[in-house]
């Protein structure tokens, strides 16, 4: 294990319910993620990949095992401490974009900075810069309703990177987009990974999209079935 390791899962289990109705979604995951990785997480539904993503994203806590994020034992943190960890180190991109309706692109991108208590001037500048990076210069004042799906996902990505996160977690970011737009989004994620060194962990169903990643992790039945590097990106 190198010191480039930022995420280490050891023996992670997750059980929902109890007694007879108990369902074990994760049956012992061991995984390390290095700084600068671009990972595609794949697997059929019910394989535990979403549960694993929620745990990596500090939105959920494991039932057993240990999760170290940059040396911090996440399973020992309180709800608020995990929120602060997300605020300062993680960025999220969702399948459904999850932008605030009737709110301009600029204000949407500024949202995480509000929670970081940046002054308005700093927020505006940072949000404009982030929108520029995702190719939406000039669209600052448009609301989600006035933007295409691809543009909305770009706004969401701008919102995720405006805080300069260590890790970007994307949950099927192209699930609601057509093939051409999906490729544009994947190229944007690749650029962010390559040029800014942001670690990207992405869940996807589509092998074409997974092909952009440097490393693929396949989940099956609550376990990591296969973990391999893409020849092209290696």
């Amino acid at each position: 294990m190198s010191d480039r390791t930022i995420i280490r899962l050891s023996g992670i289990t997750k059980t929902y319910g109890s007694g007879q109705a108990a369902f074990q979604a994760l049956k012992g995951i061991d995984l390390t993620i290095d700084r600068g990785d671009f990972i595609a997480v794949m697997g059929p539904s019910g394989s535990g990949k979403s549960t694993a993503m929620n745990i990596i994203g500090c939105l959920d806590t494991p039932s057993g095992g240990s999760y170290e994020f940059q040396g911090v034992r996440v399973e020992r943190l309180s709800r608020d401490q995990r929120a602060l960890l997300r605020r300062h180190f993680l960025g999220f991109v969702f399948q459904g974009f999850n932008l605030l309706a009737r709110t301009s692109a600029l204000e949407n991108v500024e949202l995480p900075l509000i929670y970081r208590r940046h002054p308005a001037g700093v927020r505006h500048a940072a949000a404009r810069e982030a929108l520029k990076q995702v190719g939406l210069e000039g669209w600052e004042d448009h609301t989600p309703g006035e933007l295409s799906g691809g543009q909305q996902q770009r706004v969401a990505i701008a919102r995720a990177i405006v805080t300069h996160p260590t890790v970007l977690l994307a949950d099927e970011p192209t699930g609601n987009l057509d093939t051409r737009t999906s490729e544009e989004i994947m190229e944007l994620l690749t650029t962010l990974n390559r040029d800014r060194g942001i670690t990207v962990v992405m869940v996807t169903h589509e092998p074409d999209m997974a092909a952009y990643a440097g490393r693929m992790i396949h989940f099956l039945d609550g376990r990591v079935e296969r973990d391999h590097r893409n020849g092209a990106a290696a």
């Binding site: 939105l59 709800r79 929120a83 602060l84 960890l85 997300r86 605020r87 949202l111 929670y115």
Partner: peptide
């Protein structure tokens, strides 16, 4: 949910 994910405290 989005606000909480982004890091809003309770």
């Amino acid at each position: 949910g989005t606000r909480l994910a982004i890091g809003a405290l309770e």
